[in-house]
Design a protein around this nucleic acid. Sequence first.
DNA 1: CTGTTAGCGCTTTCAC
DNA 2: GTGAAAGCGCTAACAG
Lengths: 333, 333
Amino acid sequence: MDKQTITIYDVAREAGVSMATVSRVVNGNPNVKPTTRKKVLDVIDRLDYRPNAVARGLASKKTTTVGVIIPDVTNLYFSSLARGIDDIATMYKYNIILANSDENEQKEVQVLNTLLAKQVDGVIFMGNKITEELRAEFSRSRTPVVLAGTVDPDEQVGSVNIDYETATEDSVDILVGNGHRKIAFVSESHDEPINGQYRLNGYKKALEKAAISYDDDLVLQSEYTYKVGEAVFEQLKKAGATAAVVADDELAVGILNAALDRGVSIPEDFELITSNNSKLTAMTRPQMSTVVQPLYDIGAVAMRLLTKLMNKEEIDEKTVKLPYTIDAKGTTK
Amino acid sequence: MDKQTITIYDVAREAGVSMATVSRVVNGNPNVKPTTRKKVLDVIDRLDYRPNAVARGLASKKTTTVGVIIPDVTNLYFSSLARGIDDIATMYKYNIILANSDENEQKEVQVLNTLLAKQVDGVIFMGNKITEELRAEFSRSRTPVVLAGTVDPDEQVGSVNIDYETATEDSVDILVGNGHRKIAFVSESHDEPINGQYRLNGYKKALEKAAISYDDDLVLQSEYTYKVGEAVFEQLKKAGATAAVVADDELAVGILNAALDRGVSIPEDFELITSNNSKLTAMTRPQMSTVVQPLYDIGAVAMRLLTKLMNKEEIDEKTVKLPYTIDAKGTTK
DNA sequence: CTGTTAGCGCTTTCAC
DNA sequence: GTGAAAGCGCTAACAG
């Protein structure tokens, strides 16, 4: 009692042609006489035939699906990228297998393997850090990979980002311009190049320009969650910070609210610039000043780049940097 | 110059056994002598063999992937469900093809069709409304379907929800208890049974109990976005509402902020209860009073139910209602 | 416990 | 413009 599928063979028989011809019309091959095309199309319609993508994938070695590794769909930064990815994927007739990794290196490798086992035509990876093992898998498989919102200092695989270094530098510049000398930098682990290299460098450069000496106590590494905001804010106070650049919106909201809950006036007593411009930044009061990353576009461009790679087209530049701006809203003066 | 894949045949040859035996060890079939198993495993390891899931899918008619239709990944309500779905899917060795539908009926049908073409073993649908066309596709295909956070009044397919009617009734009860008589109900279109039937009924029941007459001006249908909050709040004021039950968190935040921006004190001058308990409700100030839906669990249970369906196990109850609570936080007195 | 043999449903030469 | 036939890489009887 199986799904009683109707196959290309049934269509061929009913239409009085060969499987090859049916295949041709299904695939839009022009070498079919209009009348037979119509005949076949009619039968397809009548029988309600739907080509089996798995069989097609096996025969053609193309699955028209791409794997997307995401730390957590529930994080607005990543889900915004994912939306851009899916829209462009759909536009190019691809589907997306979405897998959460929690930025856990083991899961990432494991997920990548099952994705490759499923013969995805390409992979988009999000996750802040590329471990050696992951890089090894990337290069071992001949499947194209593009990083979205994720940097690979070695630039071995394609990636789409903004210039995190200057974005952070610009953010600190603003805070310096507003008279601050004790400016904190809060991000996830510095093991992640995006933080430990790019953003931190931008931070240091800005300090240097302003002749402010670097103070370790003002540089915090924390997970990107709302709930640690309280603890982070306490540390910030203890370190004497009067302003902060924060690398994640949820965390920034946590810090903002912790300050507010303690009666600290923002931006009067403390200024804050966050980094992603996810929806959240508009939802707080005051609204958050933020680096405006084109999140949707990062995902979209990454997927577009991947389509080119999968298509073996010539690529002008594997590493694309999208423009960003800084939107000074309510958490800066 | 293809991906130079190594196949089950290569492994068989190298190990000096038949493909069948390799297949057995790969699939954990116990009928293999430990020594040959080890021999095969060694070769697999040495050759770095990875079973081709597409071929496997064609031969076994199981793809171990399920389709997930989601209105928008960027919406925290749905992405929370999706996270629960993916975690359980992973636990049961399934992958997820995630497709955004924007609650657009055409896209939903189209996406469902490509999902079925890809031979997914099951489908999880989110989206508030099941059109006739969709229902027809559901029943025409023999692929199991489960709705997550989505009701089907006809209960033809499996679904996991909370009791939206009593949840809304309870919410209104609280507002009534706080002395309100002009309580608004704001949701998306009443074409969606979840709103037009369940929630609206709950709203009406509560009013009835309190001997408050139903006032059409207090019942608003709006899209679920942050930005319409301003307009909705204006309507609410015009209608003379002093409190509101809102069916979506983003919209609720929009309304809350519109009120705040106009100098309205909350909860003193206006009370608000929202419906999803997404992360957002904790991020506003004041924090939002809300129906606490077990979002992650709804997704998780839906996926679990789907695994049973795909496994043709006996199901005690296709329609499961998970418990909810109401958390009175800062937007109610 | 292991091997042989058909397929799964479709694409893709290669002829005609 | 169309058909025949050989796979794609694997699973699943069926023998032995």
